[in-house]
Design a binder for these strands. Structure first.
Lengths: 212, 212
DNA sequence: GGGTTAAAGTTGCCATTGACAACATCGGCA
DNA sequence: TGCCGATGTTGTCAATGGCAACTTTAACCC
């Protein structure tokens, strides 16, 4: 073994993600991590100030991955705002299932990741995709003419809630296996349904609109 | 001090809730708890097998409190299914803000509380309130005629997501202070709007209904 | 090339913690 | 009254996070 490991930081992050996926965040131990990798118990300290710092780094990376994942899904869905939005929402939930370690770290209440400029831009894109969809749905007259900002938050909260419930061991009545994708599709469609533009959803009172 | 403390179990739970509210779950230490209360470091072990056991008990109590809280709010709201539902949803979010320690414990991914019969009945009530509201909204023709079960899950996920976002330090653009109640009201209204029964929401195609 | 230096990894140490065992005390009950 | 189980106590151990002091390596400058 080389005295200088070389890319210990990345190895630590990857192994930490694996441990979290298998045993949860609480089970993550810096010393166990070091043992697994084959370095001394104090080696991680060179890269992460303390345990919380490692989790924060993990959350930062997770945020980048999540946003890249959902934005890629939206882009792959084409140009229709409603379809793009729908793909975004479904991708969010799927990310939480495919990369539970990152997702749990991101949403852990006691891990606050720093948001760099790149992340802020990604969030802007996220915001715009939902805004565009909400506007189109409102123009078609089948989404309530509430503040578009509200729709963005509402929509984000809902996908978050779906992800939370699917990842919650207490929830037993939720579909798993092959039915799960269809379930996710239905849930996201309940926010904004891209296949029902001719239908009306709630509130045709156009002058109530508050988005600026 | 009496050798026999008497109600150490309850004191431990209460103090634990206070610590969690102030410093988070990770900061909870059985020994520190014992020190605070003025009891030996091994005393908690008589009431809780280990740290996870205490958290589980806390989550169980939290679940009972949460359900009592939201069901009381629904009952106080009267008999109209839509109004009852609305009160339930808002109460859920408010609970997460008023009792963050219980809420965080309940939703902590690594704390699985046991569900006794009483809790199961409360959940049934919860379920029925949402079902009734969804049915009425569908009969009025302004909620998509999806499976009612889906509406229940969707609705639960959304309030959970709103609570999660309001409790998330990463979210900065969310209203706090006096505007927060109005915000919660708007969010829950976006699921089912009790004040808009004359409007249509999505899908009047009655024969598409799937609830059994 | 050789020496300097800073980054990265190591060993050693300490306080805190969770968990367990053995012991002490209290209260209820036969 | 005397027994006994519930409850609390002291003592101990291994694991952990975090810090300090030391060592090795690679890169850089001359």
């Amino acid at each position: 073994m080389t005295y200088h490991h070389g890319n210990l930081r990345k190895v630590l992050l990857d192994r930490a993600a694996a441990v979290i996926a298998e045993e949860g965040i609480e089970a993550l131990s810096l010393r166990a991590l070091a043992r697994d990798i084959g370095v001394s118990h104090a080696a991680p300290a060179r890269h992460f100030k303390d345990r919380a710092d490692l989790l924060r780094a993990l959350a930062t990376e997770g945020n980048h991955r999540l946003l890249a994942y959902v934005l890629a899904a939206a882009d792959a869905a084409g140009t229709d705002p409603l379809v793009r939005y729908n793909a975004l929402g479904q991708a969010y939930v799927r990310f939480s299932l495919e990369f539970p370690a990152y997702y749990r770290t991101i949403t852990h209440p006691e891990v606050a990741a720093e948001a760099d400029e790149e992340l802020r831009q990604s969030r802007e894109s996220w915001h715009r995709i939902i805004t565009d969809a909400a506007r189109k749905a409102q123009d078609a007259g089948w989404l309530p003419d509430e503040d578009v900002e509200d729709i963005v938050i509402f929509s984000t909260a809902t996908v978050r809630g779906i992800a939370a419930m699917l990842g919650d061991p207490m929830q037993e009545r939720l579909p798993g296996g092959p039915e799960r994708d269809a379930f996710i599709e239905r849930m996201v469609r309940l926010i904004i349904d891209p296949a029902a533009p001719q239908k009306s959803r709630n509130g045709n009172d156009r002058n109530k609109r508050k988005n600026k």
